[in-house]
Amino acid sequence: MKYLIMCEGPNEKAVVNLLLDNNLLIFNRNDLLGLDIYHARQLVPYLVNLINSYNCSNLKIIRIGDKFTDKLKIPESIKHIIDYKQILKCHTHPELEILLIIDKNLFDKFNKEKSKIKAKDFAKKHISLNGHLYDNTTQFWNDYFKNNIKNLVNDIKKCKKIGKNKKEEIYLADLLKK
């Protein structure tokens, strides 16, 4: 079994990489197709090429993101390899920044304002590290959590508790080692 991890944005990729490097996920690097996590919304030629080289139907595709506006298109050449039941959506509802908001104990405050402000913008306004406000960069995510992995794990778990994902969607917490 191999996992193909497709993140919608670079920040999702940074977070999953942090968890992976700290051996906190249900898979390790050897379990990943191409030994890596990818920032890709669709199966671009690079990934199709990779799937072809694996040439095995024992593949789980996990899409991580907060939008999933596009349906995942499966190119004709790999349709025989892909098992549609093995394509999972890992929803970081409402946006990945909810992790930062939870971490700073600002969830209740955000909850009161969420009809007026998106989680990303709320984070840009209220979350800072060493005097620098959140700027939506992978650098910020890495700096924020690299020495604080336990907090990240706890935030991910809390996020599931308060989450409102659809039945068929999984949470980041579901990817954590038990």
């Binding site: 191409g34 890596d36 690079y46 090429n49 990779l50 072809n52 080289s53």
Partner: peptide, 15 residues
């Protein structure tokens, strides 16, 4: 073909 595919992918691999 698999080797060619692999060579092309190496150049696209940011890591």
């Amino acid at each position: 073909r698999t080797l060619i595919d692999n060579i092309i992918n190496l150049f696209k691999d940011k890591s």
